[in-house]
Computed example of a mutant assay.
Amino acid sequence: MLATLTKNEPNYIATFERHYPHSVDEVWAMLTDNEKLPTWFAELKVDDLRKGGLILFDMGDGTFEEMTITDLSDRSVLEFTWADDSVRFELTSEQEGCKLLLIETITKLTDQTPRDLAGWHVCLDVIGVLLDGKQVENRKLQWEPLYEQYVEAINNLTK
C-alpha cells in the first residue's frame, strides 16, 4: 500500500502504515540497533540514541550527515531531522504484533521526493521480510515501479 500523501500548509505529509506479526521490541530493534539497522538501511547508524542525540547518514564519500533526534520514547517513538524535513516512526502493540507508522514531514516537494518515498516504502517492506527470517533478492526491482507510482501520486497531490 502506497503512503498517504496530504498537504498540511505549509508542508506535505507522507504517512506509511505497516502491520508486522512481530513484537514492538523486535521492530524497535530494527530501527535502533546498529547491528540490525544496516540490514534494511545500510547508510544509517545511530550515534547517540536520546532526544537531542544523533543518527548518522553515510554519504558514501567518507562524510556523514548528522540528523538530530527530535523526539524519542523508548519502543514507541523515534523522530529525527532529514535535511529540511523530519521522519517519525511510531510503534504500537497490536494483538497480532505491531503497527508501525512512518510519518515524513516534507517542507518542499522536489525531484528527489518520489525517490525518497519509494525508498522508504521498500525499506519498510524489507523490515517485514527480514523479521520473517527471509532475504530480499533485488530491492531495485521493487523500487522502480513504486517510484513511478509516487511520481504520479505527487502529481495528483499538486494539481
Rank of each mutant, 00 (worst) to 15 (best):
M1I: 06
L2Y: 04
T4N: 06
T6K: 01
K7H: 12
K7F: 07
P10R: 06
P10S: 12
P10C: 13
N11S: 14
A14V: 01
Y20K: 09
Y20D: 07
H22K: 09
S23R: 07
V27W: 09
W28M: 12
T32H: 13
D33W: 13
N34R: 13
L37N: 15
T39Y: 10
W40N: 08
E43S: 02
V46L: 10
K51G: 07
L56A: 09
D58T: 02
G60M: 04
D61K: 04
T63D: 15
T63W: 08
I69H: 09
I69Q: 03
T70E: 13
V77R: 04
W82E: 01
V87Q: 02
E90V: 13
L91T: 11
T92C: 11
S93K: 14
S93Q: 15
E94Q: 14
E96W: 05
G97Q: 11
I103T: 10
I106A: 04
T110D: 04
T110C: 02
D111R: 00
D111T: 12
Q112M: 13
Q112N: 11
T113M: 05
D116I: 01
V129C: 06
D132L: 09
Q135R: 10
E137N: 08
R139A: 13
L141M: 07
Q142P: 00
Q142H: 04
P145Q: 05
L146K: 05
E148C: 07
A153Y: 03
I154M: 00
N155C: 02
T158F: 05
K159M: 07
